[in-house]
Design a protein around this nucleic acid. Structure first.
Length: 203
DNA sequence: CCGGTGATGTTC
DNA sequence: AACATCACCGGG
C-alpha cells in the first residue's frame, strides 16, 4: 500500500479556517505497530490566535508550544482528566493556531478500533455495551482512543513524517455545514465548526 | 441532565 | 500551594 500523504505544501498553503474545511473528506491514518486504522475526517473546528477559546490565546506555555510550531505539527492535549484531543497545527510558525479533528467515519482497522475502545472502557470501569462501528470515532476523545493516538506518542510530532498522517480527499462534491463550536464557554458566537453534510456519507 | 477525572494554567 | 478551568463521555 502506497500512501500519498499530504505534505507540508498542503499545511502551508491554507489559513486556519480554509484548512479546517480542506481537511473534510481527507483520511486520517495511523500505521501503528498494532495495525493500521483510518477514517475520513467529517467534522473539524478552527482555533485562531485572536480567538478567546484558543489554547494559545494570549498564552505561550509548555502545553501550547506545539501550536506555535510549523504547519502540519501534531498537537495532542489532555482534557477532563481522561480524554485527549487531536489537532492539526496551522498557520506559520510563531502563530498559535490549529484545527481540532472532531469526528471520523471509520474506514480501516475496524476490529482494532473496537478492541482499543473496549480496553479504554474496561480501564474506565464502564459497563460493556455493544459498540456500534459508526460511534467509534464520533467525538474528539473517542477518535483518539480508536485510532491509538496519544499525547506521549504524537504530541509535537508532525503529520508530514512518521506513523500518523493524512491522505487527500477520498470523497468530494459534498456540502459543508458551518456552525458555532461545541463545549466552549468563550468564543461561542464564532462560526468555526465545519461538518460534512450527512447525505454525502451514505455511499 | 449531570458527575467523574487529572493535567494545566493562574493566582496567591 | 491552592484554586479554577476545561475543545469529553457515558449513564439515566
Amino acid at each position: 500500500m502506497i500512501y500519498n500523504r499530504l505534505t507540508s505544501l498542503f499545511y502551508e498553503s491554507h489559513d486556519t479556517k480554509s484548512m479546517a474545511k480542506a481537511l473534510l473528506g481527507c483520511e486520517l491514518v495511523h500505521d501503528s505497530p498494532d495495525g493500521l486504522t483510518s477514517g475520513i475526517i467529517i467534522e473539524t473546528e478552527a482555533y485562531l490566535q485572536d480567538d478567546p477559546a484558543c489554547h494559545a490565546y494570549n498564552r505561550y506555555t509548555p502545553r501550547t508550544q506545539p501550536m506555535y510550531g510549523d504547519p502540519g505539527t501534531i498537537y495532542v492535549y489532555h482534557i477532563y482528566g481522561m480524554y485527549q484531543c487531536l489537532n492539526v497545527v496551522s498557520n506559520r510558525a510563531g502563530i498559535g493556531e490549529a484545527v481540532l479533528i472532531r469526528a471520523l467515519k471509520p474506514i480501516r482497522g475496524l476490529e482494532l478500533m473496537h478492541a482499543r475502545r473496549e480496553r479504554a472502557h474496561s480501564r474506565a470501569n464502564v459497563s460493556r455495551k455493544k459498540m456500534r462501528t459508526e460511534d467509534l470515532c464520533s467525538g474528539p476523545g473517542k477518535l483518539v482512543q480508536s485510532m491509538g493516538i496519544s499525547k506521549a506518542l504524537h504530541n509535537n510530532g508532525t503529520f508530514t513524517e512518521g506513523d500518523l498522517f493524512i491522505i487527500p480527499a477520498q470523497i468530494s462534491g459534498f456540502e459543508i455545514d458551518v456552525t458555532t463550536r461545541i463545549g466552549l464557554r468563550v468564543g461561542t458566537e464564532l462560526p468555526y465548526r465545519y461538518i460534512i453534510r450527512e447525505d454525502a456519507l451514505k455511499m
